[in-house]
C-alpha cells in the first residue's frame, strides 16, 4: 500500500507539536510544576500505566453508555421534533434553554440524587451530548425539498411514507455529523463529572494527581483523554463514510 502525503501530515503535525513543546520547556527552563515537558509526561504515563489504563477504561465506558443513551434519545426526539412544525416551535426554545445550562452546574445535583460513582458521569455525558443530535436530525427532516414531498404526496403517500422513504435517509449525513460532535462532548461531560465527584475515571485521577502535585501525571491524564477522543471520533468518521458516503460524493457532483 502506498502512503500518501495526506496520511502522514497528521502524524507529522503531532510530532512537531510535541517537539515544540519539549523545546520550549527546555529553552525557557519552565518549571515542571507549571508545564511539564512531554518527556516528563510520557515518563509519568509509562510509570503509572496501570492506573491510567484502568481509569481511562472507566471514563471510556461511562462516556460510551452516556453517548448511546444520547443517540437513542436524540434520534427519537429529533424525529418527533422534525415531524411537525408545531412540536418544533414548541420544543425548540425549551431545548435551547436546557442546553444553555452549564452542565457543570448540574453535576452536584446528580451526585445528590445518585451518589458518587459512575451514574452521574453517564448522565452528564448524556445531557451534554444529546442536543446536537436532536438539532441535526430535526434539521435533516425539516429541510426535505418541498417539491419532492409534492411528488410523493401526489402519489398518495402518507406522512409516514415520506418520512421513511425520504426524511430519514436524508438525515443520515446530518446525524453522523452530529455523532462526531456528540462523542467528543460526551467525553467532556463524563470527565467534568469525574472531577467533581467520583471514585474512578481519568477526571478523578487528574484531581488526585493534582492534589499530590504530580503535574506530569495530570498531563498524562489529559493526553489519555485526547487519545480516547480521537479514537472515538475516528470510529464515527469511518461509520459515516460507510453509511452516508453518498453525501460526500454527492457534494462533488458530476452533473453538468
Amino acid at each position: 500500500m502506498k502512503i500518501a502525503a495526506e496520511d502522514v501530515t497528521p502524524v507529522a503535525f503531532t510530532v512537531i507539536l510535541f517537539l515544540a513543546w519539549e523545546g520550549a520547556c527546555r529553552l525557557f527552563h519552565i518549571d515542571a510544576f507549571i508545564l511539564p515537558a512531554p518527556s516528563a509526561v510520557f515518563a509519568a504515563a509509562a510509570h503509572y500505566w496501570w492506573p491510567l489504563l484502568k481509569n481511562s477504561f472507566v471514563t471510556l465506558w461511562t462516556t460510551v453508555v452516556g453517548f448511546i443513551l444520547a443517540v437513542v434519545f436524540g434520534i427519537t426526539l429529533g424525529l418527533v421534533v422534525g415531524w411537525s412544525r408545531a412540536i418544533y416551535r414548541g420544543l425548540y426554545p425549551v431545548m435551547i434553554g436546557f442546553n444553555s445550562i452549564p452542565k457543570v452546574a448540574v453535576v452536584p445535583i446528580l451526585i445528590m440524587w445518585f451518589g458518587i460513582g459512575e451514574i452521574p458521569a453517564i448522565l452528564t455525558a448524556f445531557l451534554i451530548s444529546f442536543f446536537p443530535i436532536v438539532v441535526n436530525v430535526a434539521t435533516g427532516l425539516a429541510t426535505t425539498e418541498p417539491e419532492l414531498e409534492d411528488v410523493l404526496r401526489a402519489l398518495g403517500a402518507s406522512k409516514l411514507d415520506i418520512m421513511r422513504k425520504v426524511g430519514i435517509p436524508r438525515t443520515a449525513p446530518y446525524l453522523f455529523g452530529a455523532l462526531k460532535v456528540a462523542i467528543t462532548l460526551a467525553f467532556v461531560g463524563a470527565v467534568v463529572s469525574e472531577t467533581i465527584g467520583a471514585n474512578a475515571g481519568v477526571g478523578h485521577l487528574m484531581v488526585q494527581a493534582g492534589s499530590n502535585f504530580q503535574m506530569p501525571l495530570v498531563f498524562a491524564g489529559l493526553l489519555a483523554l485526547a487519545v480516547e477522543g480521537i479514537l472515538m471520533y475516528a470510529l464515527f468518521a469511518l461509520l459515516e463514510r460507510r453509511m452516508a458516503g453518498w453525501a460526500f460524493r454527492a457534494s462533488m457532483s458530476a452533473a453538468g
Partner: peptide, 18 residues
C-alpha cells in the same frame, strides 16, 4: 385531496442521491 393518479416532474429532477 391528493389525486393519487398523477405523476409529477419539476424543473429540478429531485432524485434521491442515496
Amino acid at each position: 385531496g391528493p389525486v393519487k393518479i398523477a405523476g409529477m416532474a419539476f424543473q429540478n429532477a429531485n432524485l434521491l442521491p442515496w
